[in-house]
């Protein structure tokens, strides 16, 4: 090292200033996340306020969302959002857990990487592509499938109100596509959870003569239960906010119904469809949907992350 390189060492003052400045810049950048989250909450709430003023409590409890009649009750949209997400989670969870167990416990080593790659690539496919594919290529098939199911159960009391006639665009169609879209996130979190199961516990079960399935049932699943709850909630949160694919195939009819095959509408889809053309109260009401969605997804994600974090700590602790 030449003496020229050593000179900065003697200039204590300048170095200290640079150090402090860098530290402050880094801190401010770290705070950016908090600032943006706060700004989202404040700015959207202010813009949504006129709708709450105009509609009063009807905004939160009203069961009719009819912009042409000046009625903005968010219940039908909230209902649709939760229903679609629940359908998606119900379909996706068994598949995701199956894939996660396949990659961690069952698949031969050389199959694991390719399987994980395929699932990761699936997460990269843009939502709008899922949407137009389902719209053009699946809805006709869904329509005939749903209608034949509806015909088959038309005489059975409760089932016929759940599986009614359909035009293809439906809560069920959107839920099925959403299930595909949230499978990668549930799978990847579940995979992480499964890999935290101590190898000794698993070997112990096998040494006692358990089959692989008995080992999974008796060791892996009980050990992972908390983490899996978090994984499912993360998937649910993702489904709540999924927009374009749902907007394309759900039918755009705010609708409180027990018929899963009926047209419906969700909060993000309604915002997406209408916000660019809307004005005055309608615009405020749409932004208000955004505020509600923001609060719900923040709540779901905080709960999910907490669960995952607690599980993490327990595993690392022992």
């Amino acid at each position: 090292m030449s003496s020229a390189d050593l000179t900065p060492l003697t200039e204590q003052g300048r170095g200290a200033v640079a150090d402090t400045a860098f530290r402050v810049v880094a801190l401010l950048s770290g705070l950016a996340v908090l600032v943006i989250l706060a700004a989202i909450a404040i700015s959207t709430s202010i813009s949504a306020w006129p709708a709450v003023q105009d509609q009063g409590l009807y905004y939160f409890f009203g069961t009719e969302w009819a912009p042409s009649a000046g009625k903005y009750g968010i219940v039908p949209l909230a209902f649709g959002t939760v229903l679609v997400s629940l359908i998606a989670v119900f379909i996706s969870v068994p598949l995701s857990l199956g894939i996660a167990l396949f990659t961690t416990e069952v698949a031969p080593d050389r199959l694991r990487r390719p399987v994980i790659t395929v699932i990761d690539l699936m997460a990269a496919v843009p939502s709008v592509v899922f949407g137009i594919w389902a719209f053009y290529n699946l809805l006709p098939g869904f329509q005939s499938l749903f209608n034949s199911i509806a015909d088959a159960v038309s005489g059975i009391p409760i089932l016929n109100s759940i599986f009614g006639p359909s035009s293809g665009s439906a809560y069920m169609s959107a839920g099925m596509i959403l299930a595909l879209m949230i499978t990668p996130i549930i799978t990847s979190v579940a995979r992480e959870v499964f890999t935290t199961v101590p190898v000794n516990d698993k070997s112990g079960a096998l040494a006692l003569g358990a089959t692989k399935w008995e080992m999974i049932k008796g060791v892996v699943i009980p050990h992972s239960f908390g983490g899996l709850t978090g994984a499912v909630m993360l998937g649910f949160g993702r489904a709540l906010g999924e927009t374009v694919a749902v907007a394309l195939i759900i039918g755009a009819v705010p609708n409180i119904t027990t018929n899963l095959f009926a047209k419906g509408e969700t909060m993000p889809a309604q915002i997406f469809r209408q916000l660019s053309e809307a004005s005055s109260t309608f615009r405020a009401a749409l932004i208000g949907l955004g505020v509600c969605l923001f609060i719900i997804t923040i709540f779901v994600n905080i709960s999910a992350r907490r669960i995952v974090a607690v599980v993490d700590r327990r595993v690392k602790g022992d």
Partner: peptide, 28 residues
């Protein structure tokens, strides 16, 4: 504490629906 909180909220922020980011920029 601060770093842990920021880390946690960053994870939470990845779960905020993208449409909300659009609504946010739309309002400001």
């Amino acid at each position: 504490r601060l770093a842990s909180f920021i880390r946690f909220m960053t994870d939470v922020m990845t779960g905020v629906p993208s449409v909300i980011m659009g609504v946010f920029i739309y309002t400001i």
